[in-house]
Simulated assay, not measured.
Amino acid sequence: MEDTDFHELGRQLLTEFGSMHHRISRSADKALGGEMAVMRALMLAGGSLTPSELANRAWVSSARIANTLRTLEAKGWVEREHSKTDRRRVHVTMTDKGFQNLEIKRREFEERTAAFLEQLGETDTQEMVRLLRRLNEIIDCNQERRNAK
């Protein structure tokens, strides 16, 4: 019986991920590193966050978060308010208009995803979901082991 070369499979996997990243990086950067990432972080927080908390959760730099917040505030999607107890501290909250916009974007993304998965087909989509679920289980297990040390 032939041994599986997991190093070679790993190289192939990284090549495919790199190729996929190259193809979708522009739109992914826009979605993940910009306004929608900040809006999603606010929604998941269920309240207000400071700009530094937002930068952390949206994985963007403090310079980028400042520019993004200015843009979102100009659109009326977020509001910034100084803390009543510490005037140096700012809290960012999503407005009703921001929630509405986020819901529209979420529905659009859901439609694009469904159309893509339809092209992939039911069997391959179910297999991909199964594999991603299994990957997350392994990652969680490994993380728990590292944290226990």
Rank of each mutant, 00 (worst) to 15 (best):
E2W: 01
T4L: 15
D5T: 04
D5A: 00
H7I: 07
E8G: 01
E8W: 07
L9E: 07
G10V: 00
R11Y: 02
Q12I: 05
T15L: 11
S19T: 11
M20S: 05
H21T: 07
H21Q: 11
H22C: 06
R23A: 02
I24Q: 02
I24F: 05
S25Q: 09
S27Q: 09
D29H: 10
A31H: 06
G33I: 03
E35S: 11
M36K: 05
M36S: 10
M36V: 09
M36C: 11
A37P: 01
L44D: 13
G46F: 04
S48P: 00
P51I: 01
L54C: 03
N56D: 15
A58T: 05
A58E: 03
V60Q: 01
S62T: 13
L69H: 00
E73M: 09
A74C: 12
A74F: 13
A74G: 14
G76H: 11
W77I: 04
W77N: 02
V78T: 09
V78W: 07
E81Y: 08
K84A: 14
T85M: 13
T85R: 07
R88K: 08
R88G: 08
V92H: 02
T93W: 02
M94I: 13
M94F: 01
M94W: 02
T95W: 11
F99L: 08
Q100V: 08
N101W: 12
L102A: 14
R107G: 09
E111R: 11
T113M: 15
A114V: 14
A115K: 08
A115D: 13
L117M: 12
L117R: 03
Q119G: 09
Q119H: 13
L120W: 08
T125M: 07
E127H: 07
M128Q: 04
L131S: 08
L131K: 06
L131R: 09
E137W: 12
I139E: 10
D140N: 12
D140S: 13
C141E: 15
C141Q: 14
N142E: 14
R145W: 12
R146S: 07
N147D: 14
A148P: 01
A148D: 15
